Computed example of a mutant assay.
Amino acid sequence: MSYYEPLVYIVPPEDEGMLLKTILQNRLMVSRKLLSRLKLTEEGITVNGERKYINVKVAAGDRVEVRMEKEESDDILPQDLPLNILHEDEHLLIVAKDAGIIVHPTHGHYTNTIANAVVHHWRESGISCRFRPVHRLDQETSGVLAIAKTPYVHQQISEQMIRHEVKKEYMAFVWGTVEGPQGTINEPIDRDPEQPHVRMVRPDGYPAVTHFELDRQYAEAALVRLRLETGRTHQIRVHMKHLGHPLLGDKMYTLPCYEESPAVREIAGLLERQALHAYKLGFIHPGTREWVEYQAPLPADLAALQARLQENSK
């Protein structure tokens, strides 16, 4: 049986006599779910090289190690597809996702996904990892995507997301004149009862908070930067439509006033997807415990859109 590089904690004098369970949960930040899994592994938890029960006490200078078994995504077909890697280390893979590709295989769609490309990349590189995206991006949204290489890394970043500590920033081109340099949309979101695949602002929905800042106002549209506090499905698209500024190219969340405008139709014809790009992702790196940020440049289709909007605004 093979393992990933262990997590190591050398017990300092102030932790003398502390339960091993407390060390694992409060110092190494191992979740209860992962802890239960580790206890079933032959060499999952050791102190000074020996397997120990988690209710024993540790002494100053003890070397606590946590090992996780190596895994692979045997249910995902490796495919040699383009993969724009922004960063990779033993803990994480950060890629810039193109619009039009989905993240993970779904029923009836088993190939041509980010997962297929990543599994191929790892096998070619001799890396044994299970595909674990930390978050999702809509099929037609481009931008930064983080993929964890171990259950521990996935857990660490997921908990940061639950605590709203992960910085997720987007760029969006929206219709109309945006009032004010910045604002916050605090409106609950849930499914449209008549169209379950569509979301809408509803008083009885789930809390959703989006912060926005006007970056550039054009003649027909605007470029806004957005930061999410919550991660509801289609949150930015729903919130911006609710504000009266749906995203350019968004066929699901639009408004009649924009559908009827010839100028709007001409510009929207430049796009095959909604004009939304996840350009920045920041969090505390589970390996280094330092704050990191990753950015994906504006893709070619949105850069061309921006150039047209600038030309039309002269």
Rank of each mutant, 00 (worst) to 15 (best):
M240V: 05
E179M: 12
Y206H: 15
A208W: 02
E16I: 02
G61T: 01
A59T: 04
P297A: 08
R308V: 07
N186E: 14
H104Y: 14
H121C: 09
S125I: 00
Y4P: 09
L34F: 11
L24G: 05
H242I: 00
Y152T: 00
I189C: 09
L228F: 12
P133W: 08
V95E: 13
G287I: 10
E159L: 14
I85D: 01
M18C: 13
Q139Y: 13
V144Q: 03
P12D: 09
R191V: 01
W291R: 15
T113S: 12
A148G: 04
K57I: 12
C129I: 00
M252P: 06
L247F: 09
Q195P: 02
E5P: 07
T184L: 14
G44K: 12
E194P: 05
E169V: 00
T106H: 11
G126I: 00
G282E: 06
Q79I: 07
R232G: 14
V144K: 02
L309G: 04
V56L: 13
L276G: 07
G44M: 05
H164N: 13
L226F: 06
A117T: 05
D190H: 12
N112M: 08
T230G: 10
M1T: 04
T184K: 12
G49A: 06
C129E: 01
G183H: 00
V56G: 06
E311G: 07
T41P: 08
I76M: 11
I114E: 01
T111A: 09
K70A: 12
N116S: 03
P286G: 00
M240E: 11
V153D: 07
Y218A: 12
I267A: 14
A221V: 02
P207V: 05
P299F: 03
E65D: 05
T177D: 14
E16L: 08
N112V: 01
L35K: 06
L248S: 10
S36G: 15
A275H: 09
L214E: 02
L243E: 11
R308K: 15
V64C: 05
T46I: 01
I94A: 04
A263E: 15
R237N: 09
I147Y: 04
P78T: 02
